[in-house]
């Protein structure tokens, strides 16, 4: 195994009296698709919330690209190049596609962050280009995201991550409630990203999707890692055994 893209050592998370992560050690190799599986409460969503800066670990260290990383806020994660795409809370439905692509990272004509005049034209143009890059064809960047299908939204979110040159992408249940056609499209996006050398953490309850697209499978149970194997070494029935 090459030098890991991201490592965590002794990661603990307490929510009040609930011990959600219990001393996790994990290495995630560069440029692979990691399937993260586990039953509800196994700690996988706690883990990605820590990586994306929504929560802070109670104890333990995170190393990203060889250096210790301190992730206190979502912006810290994004600045490192870690982008998380949540199934339901990646987009603001009432806002336009262009605004969604640049949410929190708007392009300004002038001014400083928090008090700057938006550059609408540049945002629309770059958003369309980014979306086209992932193979999605939308007519206008001004349409509100609520008019898009679930698969299209995933596409826009992935285009956003690509546009901001993320080096690690965390996908939280990206295929939930999608049609078969759209699911295939999302799995296709994941393969595209691996080709471009981006590390992907793929979280899903659908073990078939995980198995189909992942290079490695990491299984969580009761707040810790219980398995870390190559995809070829396991089967879906075996994965079910691991997490139950």
């Amino acid at each position: 195994m090459t030098k890991p893209h991201l490592s965590v050592r002794g990661l603990h998370k307490w929510y009040g009296s609930v011990h959600a992560l219990r001393g996790l050690d994990l290495d995630i190799p560069q440029g692979q698709v990691i399937g993260l599986i586990g039953d509800n409460g196994a700690g996988k969503s706690t883990f990605i919330k820590i990586l994306s800066g929504v929560h802070k670990q109670t104890e333990g260290q995170i190393f990203f690209e060889g250096k210790e990383a301190h992730i206190a806020r979502p912006r810290d994660a994004m600045n490192l190049g870690i982008e998380t795409i949540y199934q339901y809370t990646a987009m603001v439905p009432e806002m336009s596609i262009a605004r969604n692509v640049f949410i929190g990272r708007e392009k300004r004509k002038w001014g400083v962050r928090g008090f700057g005049m938006l550059d609408h034209a540049a945002m629309a143009e770059e958003a369309m280009a980014a979306i086209a890059d992932v193979g999605l064809h939308l007519r206008s960047a001004d349409a509100p995201v609520k008019d898009l299908s679930g698969g299209q939204r995933q596409g826009v979110a992935i285009a956003r991550a690509m546009h901001f040159r993320s080096r690690m992408l965390i996908l939280d249940e990206p295929t939930n409630h999608l049609s078969v056609k759209e699911t295939n499209k999302v799995l296709e996006y994941v393969r595209q990203m691996r080709e471009q050398g981006i590390t992907v953490i793929f979280i899903s309850h659908n073990l078939h999707h995980v198995h189909e697209v992942s290079d490695r499978i990491v299984a969580f149970s009761r707040g810790n890692k219980v398995a870390d194997l190559l995809s070829e070494e396991t089967t879906v029935p075996h994965m079910i055994d691991l997490i139950t």
């Binding site: 994306s52 929504v54 979502p74 949540y86 809370t89 987009m91 603001v92 949410i103 929190g104």
Partner: peptide
């Protein structure tokens, strides 16, 4: 529009 989305995107 979506407080969680905004927070997740660093706002």
């Amino acid at each position: 529009g979506s407080q969680e989305s905004a927070r997740n995107m660093g706002i």
